Computed example of a mutant assay.
Amino acid sequence: MDHNEYKAYLKQQYSHKIRPLQSVNDVISAFQKKLDLVETELSESEIIFLKMTILNYTHAHKNDPIISNLDNLNFISYEVVKNEKSDYYYNHMKINSGNERILVIIESQLNEITSNCEELKVDMLIERGIDTSHVKQDTPNFFAYLMLFDN
């Protein structure tokens, strides 16, 4: 299947699942209905994940005036409580030890959300949705969003 065929396939398969862009706070609220999320402080080893996240956001938002002053950013981290509701994600990550946990990190000014669990991150990005301008203009962001469903 060539690139254009794949794009047509994605549109045909998943266009009905497209969600309008929501704030990361709305996504957190939606997932708090499915999972037990508690605001948390990061451990020393988890700070590395936050630092990588900041670098990714800095790169992705390099033309954004907010990013020019990193002091304005406010990261909030959540722990996904390990219980029956979260078994799917914990099993996916194969976390067995008691000190490892699934994290969700948001930055509301940039409207960014991430997780150290790829499956949860994808589910949250799907829930977050996409700006309708990307859909109307068939941008690469639109197709990246559709690919989340396909993966």
Rank of each mutant, 00 (worst) to 15 (best):
D2S: 11
E5W: 08
E5I: 13
E5H: 14
Y6P: 09
Y6H: 15
K7H: 11
L10D: 11
K11G: 07
K11P: 03
Q12P: 07
Q12E: 15
S15F: 12
S15P: 05
I18D: 06
I18N: 06
R19T: 09
R19D: 07
R19W: 03
R19K: 15
P20E: 14
L21F: 08
Q22Y: 06
Q22N: 12
Q22T: 10
S23P: 05
S29R: 10
S29K: 13
Q32E: 14
Q32L: 02
Q32A: 06
L35Q: 07
L35K: 08
L35Y: 09
L35I: 07
D36F: 06
L37T: 04
E39L: 03
T40M: 01
S43N: 06
S43A: 12
E44D: 09
E44H: 07
I47S: 04
I48Q: 12
K51L: 07
M52T: 12
L55W: 06
L55R: 14
N56R: 13
N56I: 10
T58I: 02
K62I: 12
D64C: 02
P65H: 04
P65Q: 05
I67Q: 00
I67C: 00
S68N: 11
L70R: 07
N72K: 12
L73Y: 03
F75E: 04
I76F: 01
I76V: 13
I76Q: 09
S77I: 02
Y78L: 01
Y78C: 02
V80L: 03
K82G: 05
K82Y: 13
E84K: 15
E84N: 15
S86N: 10
S86V: 12
Y88H: 13
Y88V: 13
Y89I: 06
N91K: 15
I95G: 03
I95T: 05
N96T: 13
N96V: 11
G98V: 10
R101Q: 11
I102T: 05
L103R: 01
L103Y: 07
L103G: 03
L103T: 02
I106N: 08
E107H: 05
S108W: 03
S108D: 15
Q109K: 15
L110F: 04
L110T: 14
T114M: 10
N116P: 09
E119N: 12
K121P: 03
D123V: 09
M124R: 02
L125Y: 06
E127C: 10
R128P: 12
G129C: 11
G129R: 08
I130N: 01
I130K: 00
H134N: 09
K136P: 02
D138K: 05
D138N: 15
T139N: 00
P140L: 05
N141R: 04
N141P: 00
F142R: 00
F143T: 00
A144F: 01
Y145M: 00
